[in-house]
Amino acid sequence: MSAPDVAVSPDAPEPLLVERRDDRVIATLNRPDKRNAIDQATIDAIHALCAELEDEPRILIITGTDGVFASGADIAQMRERTAADARAGINANAFVRINELPMPVIAAVDGWALGGGAELAFAADIRIATPDAKFGNPETGLGIIPAAGATWRLKEIVGEARAAELLLTGRILDAAEALSIGLVTAVHPTADLLAEAHAIADRIAKNDPAATMATKRVMRAPRADHPHVDLEEQAVLFESPEKHRRMTEFLERRSAKRSAK
């Protein structure tokens, strides 16, 4: 995949801060002086993180800094990109890779998530937000289209008519509207946002990772592949020792509860 050569200052901070735990990774966009605008260095860091999570699947939480998720792509770099850069899908391919990670991805959005920042959030499996969150795709006002996923992901999330209105007008929507149309699943106070993201991750982590990854794969399969793809994944899981262990424990707990009455 080609990309423009971009000079990076040796003193520049890491564009993506990564905290690793046994069952999850927390990635924090870290360009506060640029309102977390997504530049080439950020994209490179995303690819490196995806390679790690493809090799060792874990839940991913993506968040921002200083009250901003991501204000969009770095316009100074975007202005210089050419037709060849557009066809290379610099941001689009990174966001596809995030969306296709084996384990779930949670976007914890505080403040602006615009343009490429919104598209990054759209690539997550689950989105939660603070009351200060604002989503929008103002690309047509800059003479381009939202080509990193919004034109097809957003209509899958909120429906075609709603997506058309948002993308064609470039209108910004707040957290309350994002919740009402299903773009986010919950709105939490700013101080609680990351803890709530971890609470979702905790619930996911209690489940069988193999079943979780199978569920994500099946959810992303084309409609024509169902129910065949569901049944094939289930066939593998039905033979797994973990399925037998978990179901045995469930039956034993139920039996113990009945005996205690």
Rank of each mutant, 00 (worst) to 15 (best):
R245I: 09
D66H: 13
P104H: 04
I98L: 15
A7L: 13
R58V: 10
A51I: 10
E160M: 10
K206T: 15
H47E: 15
A94N: 03
A88E: 09
G141V: 04
K243D: 05
A235C: 04
I61M: 02
L120C: 08
L142N: 11
R171Q: 11
L166Y: 00
N93T: 13
L60D: 07
A175H: 05
S9M: 06
I59N: 02
S180R: 01
K261S: 13
D33R: 14
R87Y: 11
E160K: 09
P131Q: 10
E54W: 03
I43Y: 00
A256H: 05
G141E: 08
D110Q: 14
R24K: 06
T63W: 00
I181D: 00
A113I: 13
V68Y: 02
T190M: 04
T42D: 06
D66L: 11
M213K: 11
P32N: 07
E249K: 14
D192V: 04
G116V: 04
G159L: 08
P222W: 03
R127P: 01
I181N: 00
I61S: 03
P104S: 08
R127N: 07
P131E: 12
A76V: 13
G159Y: 01
P57G: 09
N207G: 12
E52T: 14
A88F: 01
R220T: 09
E139A: 14
I43F: 01
T63A: 03
F95H: 06
I144T: 13
A73Q: 11
P13G: 09
G72R: 03
A147G: 15
N36A: 08
A129Y: 03
M1L: 09
A83C: 04
P189K: 04
P222D: 11
M103S: 14
K134H: 08
D44W: 02
E196T: 12
D23Y: 06
R35V: 11
D132F: 05
A205H: 01
E56H: 12
A199G: 06
D11C: 04
D110Y: 01
I26Q: 05
D110C: 11
A113M: 06
A92Y: 15
S255L: 11
E165Q: 12
G117L: 09
V187Y: 00
A88G: 08
L49T: 08
R246D: 13
A45G: 09
L167N: 00
A210M: 09
R97M: 10
D230N: 08
I59G: 04
V8K: 04
M78L: 15
V109H: 02
D230S: 11
A260S: 11
I43C: 07
L173V: 15
V68K: 00
E19T: 14
R162G: 01
A70N: 07
D192Y: 05
E242Q: 14
N207S: 10
R35E: 13
V187I: 15
V236W: 03
V187N: 01
R220Q: 13
R127D: 00
E165G: 08
A70D: 06
D174Q: 03
P209R: 02
I43M: 11
D23R: 15
A113Q: 05
D125A: 07
A27D: 09
I128A: 04
S2L: 09
L17E: 10
I75M: 10
A86L: 14
T28C: 08
T215E: 09
P131D: 10
L53M: 07
I128G: 02
N137M: 12
D74T: 09
